[in-house]
Design a protein around this nucleic acid. Structure first.
Lengths: 230, 230
DNA sequence: CATGGGATATACATCTGAGGAATAACTGTT
DNA sequence: AACAGTTATTCCTCAGATGTATATCCCATG
């Protein structure tokens, strides 16, 4: 801490400029040469700082144009969490699922209160687009999008982004592995339908209950699969 | 996407090495010169990639030693979320608090089931250490640590880390601004005590209820404060 | 033999300067 | 006024040199 790397200092300083309001969303940063001089380091080191901040969607770098502060909206910033979640190992999947079991029913219940007729219609069309006998890949894709839309309808962008990160690539891709057996396919689709019906009726507690059942059934299957492998 | 920057490619490749198991937690990466050659880019560009991955605690770089893959534990990776949360503006604080209102009661309920006698004793000592008339700063610090410990006792590291990120620096620092008035200080302390008593009795639903009350009281105060300012 | 200190090797940290590539801005023509 | 070609700006990538922190090895010492 006494001798902080110049790049880390630069990261902190840029972060400070943003959190203290000297740089606002959409603002353009001074060009590399100038900013490097202003912060007292070389362009190479500054670029490391900027690259790190752009990985987490705080900065947006455009060649030939300039470097800008992003909108800083929760959805945009929390996108980076998907990237982080991708690194988790299989033995922590259950912990993520447990958190999702807490968030998803709450989000679905909130959606039941806020969802519009148009959103309900879109959701219905989305489920119908799947057809009666989809492949596992199609179902997973459809499922992911279904829950993303429900999350959005909750009206809380932070909640929607968190759920999306955790339902996303990793967890889901692994959880569904070998799901073709045991009729889980049709059960998933009927659970989706039940959630949709509750949403359409603005039935808050019904939506919460069906969402809980949906997650729990995934969790039970996963626990069996993991214990079988062990 | 067609013409991806070499640095972004390097980030993906390193990520791939880790997620595919070619690099495991604790493993050491080839030294800069070798890895740069292996990935086909210059050291400068590679360093940008490594710096970005080290910001989110995927890599750990030690001068004079080498670059290592971190433990990749959820707690470690999700630490980076605090950094991200720091960028959010005041107008999204309520969204974060709403998510916390969902997670905190669930975590507290889980803690009531898992908490050990020793953890209860430690928690009691922690609250007692505050004294009867603390400053706002002391209370905030004590409060943060109290909830961190409860989160840990939930037994779910993902849940604990998420809560810590959201209760953490930013949100809390802003939420508590000017909290000295209206006796919120003593109310906070008595709510903490009630949560602790429920935990000690392994009273799951009592713990959940008191945690809810605790968050809601913060939320109500915050809504009033924000509407006053507007 | 165990231990501590100093020399050496290793690996990351930082800077500088050059040329390339993508985008925006300008300018002249139609 | 609209378009196309030129120019300017800005980020992208590389190469090489030097500085700095850490680990390792080796030897003197108790």
């Amino acid at each position: 801490m006494l001798v902080m790397a110049v790049t880390d200092e630069a990261i902190d300083k840029i972060k400070g400029m943003i959190t203290e309001g000297r740089l606002r969303p959409g603002d353009r940063l001074p060009k590399e040469v100038d900013l490097a001089a202003e912060l007292g380091l070389s362009r190479s080191s500054l670029r490391e700082a900027v690259r790190a901040l752009s990985l987490i969607h705080v900065l947006d770098v455009r060649q030939g144009d300039g470097t800008y502060v992003t909108s800083l909206e929760p959805g945009r910033l929390l996108e980076a969490m998907s990237f982080v979640v991708d690194f988790h190992r299989d033995d922590t999947v259950l912990e993520f699922l447990e958190v999702r079991r807490i968030l998803e029913p709450a989000a679905t219940a909130m959606a039941a209160q806020h969802i519009t007729d148009e959103e309900v219609a879109d959701l219905r069309a989305h489920l119908a687009a799947l057809g009666p006998a989809p492949t596992v890949e199609e179902l997973v894709k459809n499922d992911l999008e279904f829950h993303r839309r429900v999350g959005t309808s909750s009206g809380n962008t932070v909640l929607a982004s968190l759920l999306d990160s955790m339902s996303g690539p990793t967890t889901r891709a692994r959880v569904w592995r070998g799901l073709t057996q045991e009729g889980a396919l049709t059960r998933t689709m009927s659970e989706h339908q039940a959630i949709l019906d509750a949403l359409a009726a603005h039935d808050t507690e019904g939506a919460r209950a069906w969402a809980t059942i949906h997650i729990v059934s995934i969790e039970q299957w996963l626990r069996r699969t993991l214990s079988d492998q062990a």
